[in-house]
Amino acid sequence: MGTYRKHLSGDMAFKSFVPTPISEIRIVHTERLDKLIRVVEDAMNRLNVYAVQLSDEQVLQFMRQEAEFSCKLASGGQPVSFALGTNTDDESIDDVENLLKATFYALEAMDELPLSARLLKNAHYLMCNSERYAKKYPGEFRSSPVWIGRKGSGLNDALFVPPAYEDMVNAFSDLEHFIHYTEENVFIKAAILHYQFEMIHPFIDANGRIGRLLIILFLYENKVSYSSVLLLSNAISAYIEKYYNMIQHVNTTGDIDAWVRFFLPVLEYAMRLTLKSVEHCVGHCPSA
């Protein structure tokens, strides 16, 4: 859902993606879509009833589980607490702990800061605060091109090249405005927000982790989620092949409505997964 900008010429030529301005996106409300919204709202309401009963220690357990899933989803593996028969390396542990620090920071910072580039940059700095990210500019938007492709590919034969710097900055400014000033159902906004953030790809690394955290923060800031407890990465991993196919489908066809119809059930599944665990924890886990 966008266009492409040509850069350079000859053997060095490549095209970068230019997202359709998010402020120009209009979702067609149909009976089918409105039914999906009601299903997600019901799942969120049921989760809220139990999530507010969790102790601080229990909330931490769920946040850690989401961090584990998010980090392993980023690396293409399985969550560390479920990776039976494998060794948990120090880098994986560091990533989980840093993502937890970033999440705690962001939740507290939203008392004073809006959900914005500044807040996400600060969260990214904490998330990537280790030696192996030192050359990937933690806490800063990228100023040079990045690309996604097969091992050994470059800009001119990459599968996807996110927006160049100027286009990226403009798209992110538009995204911030969308977060705070666009009137639309909050779950539809979450779906569009996630897609657009991933296409903007503002950081050199950890865009997936930040993009998943962004949705949790967005739902919390909009007071539809009464707790930071949501196993979103777990749910996305269950749909991961279709997730990437749908992103490519939108890029190719501009069919953002199809993406929304895909992402809302993923959100609902995340809420159902979380509710099942929360119900068990409230009934059986010891309080802090």
Rank of each mutant, 00 (worst) to 15 (best):
P265M: 13
L73C: 09
L120N: 12
S173K: 08
R212C: 10
I204R: 07
I204S: 08
I210E: 01
M12P: 00
K101R: 10
D174A: 09
H124N: 08
W147A: 11
F172I: 05
W259S: 13
P145G: 09
S143G: 15
L100K: 09
A134Y: 12
R272N: 14
V39P: 00
F172V: 10
E97W: 01
Q65V: 04
R26H: 11
R209E: 06
G149I: 09
R209N: 04
A51E: 10
F14P: 11
L120G: 14
R5M: 04
V40I: 07
A102T: 02
V260R: 07
K35Q: 04
L219R: 11
F141V: 11
V186F: 07
T3A: 07
G154T: 15
H194M: 02
S116Y: 09
F14R: 14
L47W: 15
A117I: 07
T182Q: 12
V28I: 11
A164I: 12
P145E: 15
K223C: 02
Y220A: 13
K72H: 08
H284E: 11
G139D: 09
D255Y: 09
A191Y: 07
V49T: 12
N222M: 06
Y137E: 15
E57I: 11
T86G: 00
T86W: 00
E279A: 05
A13V: 13
A171G: 09
W259P: 05
S143R: 14
H284P: 00
A67V: 09
A74T: 15
C281V: 12
F172G: 07
K135L: 09
F197H: 02
K136G: 01
I37T: 02
Y244P: 01
G2V: 06
S92W: 00
M199N: 14
N45F: 13
L84A: 11
G77I: 00
N87M: 02
K242N: 07
I256L: 08
A74V: 03
T88D: 02
E68Q: 05
T20P: 00
L8D: 10
G208K: 04
P162A: 02
L8R: 14
A67D: 06
Q61T: 11
A288C: 04
V229A: 10
Y181R: 15
E112V: 13
E112F: 06
Y137N: 14
A238W: 01
I200G: 03
V49W: 13
M271K: 00
P163L: 04
N251Q: 08
A123K: 10
L8S: 14
V266P: 03
A117L: 12
V49A: 07
G149R: 11
A123G: 15
F197T: 06
L126D: 09
C128F: 01
V266K: 03
L193P: 03
A270N: 08
Y239V: 01
V28Y: 02
G2N: 05
